[in-house]
């Protein structure tokens, strides 16, 4: 195949798009986190995220978030097309600020949990989950 000017341009364009994509996904997560925390500094103590190290089926990955005293916990899947997963708001009758649910993961990625404390501070934790079969259809 002869390498024409058109081919070279197309290849350059393709690689530029490929390079941009992960950056854009990352930016979406950053924006979502900023929307929740309001840009405040985020600590790391006092929140636990329990997720499997390896999930065979990305369609149902069991996770548990625990943040004693928190008013709300938000969960993100950094590698999903839409990073937001769920927001748990705890009322006065919640015995513990913890919840168990099952989530979808598109592939191997970090799951991030951020808790809002009553004094307005935020704490964050994350864990990598290796996914054998992704769970976002396709």
């Amino acid at each position: 195949m002869k390498l024409t000017r058109r081919h070279t341009l197309m290849m350059a364009f393709g690689s530029a798009v490929a390079a941009l994509l992960p950056v854009r996904a990352f930016a979406a997560l950053e924006d979502d986190i900023a929307a929740f925390t309001g840009g405040a500094n985020v600590g790391s103590e006092g929140i636990t995220l329990i997720a499997p190290e390896i999930a065979e089926n990305g369609n149902t990955v069991p996770i548990e978030v625990i943040a004693p005293g928190a008013t709300a916990i938000i969960v993100f899947a950094s590698g999903n097309p839409v990073p937001a997963v769920a927001t748990f708001n705890f009322g006065p009758l919640a015995a513990s600020q913890s919840a168990v649910t099952r989530i979808r993961l598109a592939g191997t990625q970090d799951v991030v949990a951020i808790a809002r404390m009553p004094d307005g501070t935020f704490v964050q934790t994350s864990q990598e989950v290796k996914v054998t079969i992704g769970g976002c259809g396709g």
């Binding site: 369609n59 999903n80 839409v82 769920a86 927001t87 919840a99």
Partner: peptide, 10 residues
């Protein structure tokens, strides 16, 4: 508890 669900819930 009051949970907001996104499409990433199974």
């Amino acid at each position: 508890i009051d949970v907001t669900l996104e499409p990433a819930i199974s």
